[in-house]
Computed example of a mutant assay.
Amino acid sequence: MSLKHSYTLISPFYDLVLAAASRSQRADSLAELPQAPARVLLSGVGTGLDLPLLPLQHHYTGIDLTPAMLRRARRRAGDLDFQWIQGDSQRLPFADRSFDHAVLHLILAVLPDPVACLRETARVLAAGGSVLIFDKFLQPGQWAPVRRLVNPMVRHVATRLDVVFEEVLAQVPGLVVASDQPALAGGWFRRIRLQRV
């Protein structure tokens, strides 16, 4: 089953599972956006759970693979300057340096190729821009036998449980860690801010 198909099936239930559990962490991550108006990419915008938490002064572009998710996101946009595009975060349909900042909330550990997603994000990001990440990652060298055992079953339906962020970042030049904080589930989920150099 493809992610596009599975997330079409999941979309009606997605918010029930994630909205309350992730709201405060999303808000804390999004508070890192600058005050000055900017072009902000929301990669893997999903059902738009971030949209009500965003400041109004920026121009936002949300991309997601699944039309069912995008339909829900559009309804949450409110007064935001928000453009939505159906597309793949692993192959962004944007020119180099199109955005000042990017938000990757719960997307890197979902995609089959998180390196491609982060590499594409770096490509479309202007120098000095930031990448705000909220997601679940294994720690380097962490065994996590249950997560690794379950991963082959769930990775094609909903999410990956085996992504080590440091291994992903090591393959993407031009991005450096500005902050890295534990979030939920004893640090399994992390809030990370990267800077484009």
Rank of each mutant, 00 (worst) to 15 (best):
W84D: 09
F137Q: 05
V146T: 09
R71M: 11
L51T: 00
V177S: 14
A144Q: 04
R97H: 11
A144W: 10
P145R: 10
P55S: 13
A158P: 05
R119K: 15
S98Q: 07
I85V: 10
L104N: 09
Q139L: 04
T47P: 12
Q139F: 06
G128T: 08
I133W: 05
V154G: 06
G129N: 08
R119H: 15
S89R: 08
V164Y: 10
S98H: 04
P67E: 12
A73E: 09
L65M: 07
D162M: 06
D100R: 09
L80W: 03
R147F: 12
L70V: 04
P112I: 04
Q171I: 02
P173Y: 02
A127I: 05
D81R: 11
R148C: 11
F94Y: 08
L80K: 09
Q83I: 14
A68P: 03
D64Q: 01
G87L: 07
P145F: 07
D100P: 00
L118C: 12
L104S: 13
H105K: 01
W143E: 12
R123I: 10
L65D: 02
A178Y: 15
V154S: 01
R97N: 08
S179M: 15
L56D: 15
L125A: 06
R76I: 09
R147Y: 10
V176C: 01
M69P: 06
R91C: 14
L175P: 07
V163N: 14
D81P: 00
V157Y: 02
R119A: 15
W84Y: 13
M153C: 15
M69F: 03
L111P: 14
V168Y: 03
H58S: 15
V172Y: 02
A144C: 15
D79K: 09
Y60Q: 12
E167V: 12
F137C: 04
P140F: 14
F99D: 01
Q57S: 11
L65N: 09
V164I: 06
T66M: 06
G87A: 01
R147T: 04
R74G: 03
H101W: 15
G87T: 08
D113P: 03
D113K: 09
G48C: 03
E166V: 07
Q90P: 14
E167Y: 05
L118N: 10
F82Y: 14
A68C: 08
V154K: 13
A122V: 09
L138M: 03
L138I: 01
D79G: 08
L80A: 11
D88Y: 14
V146Y: 14
Q57L: 12
V177D: 04
V103M: 03
L51S: 04
H105Y: 07
A77H: 00
Y60H: 03
A68E: 00
A126K: 14
V176Y: 06
A178P: 14
V115W: 01
V176A: 00
S130F: 15
L138V: 00
D113L: 05
H105P: 00
Q83Y: 15
T47W: 13
H58K: 11
V103K: 11
Q139R: 01
G174N: 14
A109K: 07
V103G: 10
T159P: 01
F165P: 02
